[in-house]
Amino acid sequence: MNRIRSAVAMGMIGALALGACGSDEEAADTTVAAAKTITVAGANFPESQILAEIYAQALENSGVRIARKDPLGARELYYQALLNNEVQLMPEYTNSLLSHVLKQDGADKSPTATNVDEQLAELKAALPTTLTVGAPSSAEDKDVIVCNAAAVEEHSLATLSDLFAVADQITLGGPPELEGRSPFGLKGFKDDFDADFKEFVPLDSGLIAESIASDAIDCGSMFSTASSITTEGLITLEDDQKIVPNEAVLPIIRTDVATPEVMGVLDQVSAGLTTDILKSLIVKVEIDKQSPSEVAKAYLASVSQGG
């Protein structure tokens, strides 16, 4: 049953990813309604959808009108949707967002910030005036490389350095956008560490854990909060090269809808979120098969009772 559900979810995501291109008419519609309604979307993985629902429901509870958009694909796509005003509020991660923003307009800059405060300052300077971010939460979700036991044993892997040393014998899987990303991506691994992997297999994010666990690929790129790392018995490699900086969760929002009331609600949400809370919410979606909207609702109810 779990498999069927994730199969259905994957099919939907695929369809949505393909449908995400070219909807100029909708952009025009949301511009008109922008004063009243905020369009919220998550990216195409459960955590982002939970966070999007938490933002959406917290705002709804405060009387803001919310329109929901189906999950969007990779950052390369949804950042464009934010710029085009097709979406107005999304959950983001400090370093990933900063790295992406710095590479806009053909620039090839990398973040210099090493902690969340510096990232926030750099981000606010780099974002176009149409976009802004809320306060970062203490919840973090980093990119990690995980491997199956067979690969770890055969090549005695413990750190990313170990992995890069034997890269030419390793089949690496990950979301398709990993191929062109730097520093954490195939491009960065090759440019910075001279690690040329035997093969890169572009996979749907919902299929990566199972592909690694079945030994179909040796290692893959996943999120550190993913429950499947534990349930599939995968081994996370230590980031000894400090490639992945802090990735604090924060909302990105169109400036024209970022009123003080809205930002107040979002900052309050961020103040309550921690990595452990986030992990427990993801388990409810990935393992217990609750919907992101149910999980968000239960979480917000528990927060308001507690506070």
């Binding site: 994957m10 695929g14 990813a17 393909l18 694909g73 990779a74 390369e76 796509l77 464009q80 899987g173 979301p175 398709p176 956008e177 191929e179 062109g180 297999v201 572009p202 996979l203 749907d204 299929l207 592909s211 179909a216 690929i217």
Partner: peptide
């Protein structure tokens, strides 16, 4: 075959290129 299943074929480029905006 290449659309997220990682099984190659020419779809690999369409899938990976689309996600990476190439």
């Amino acid at each position: 075959a290449g659309f997220g299943f990682g099984l190659g074929g020419l779809g690999r480029f369409i899938y990976a290129g689309y996600s990476g905006r190439r």
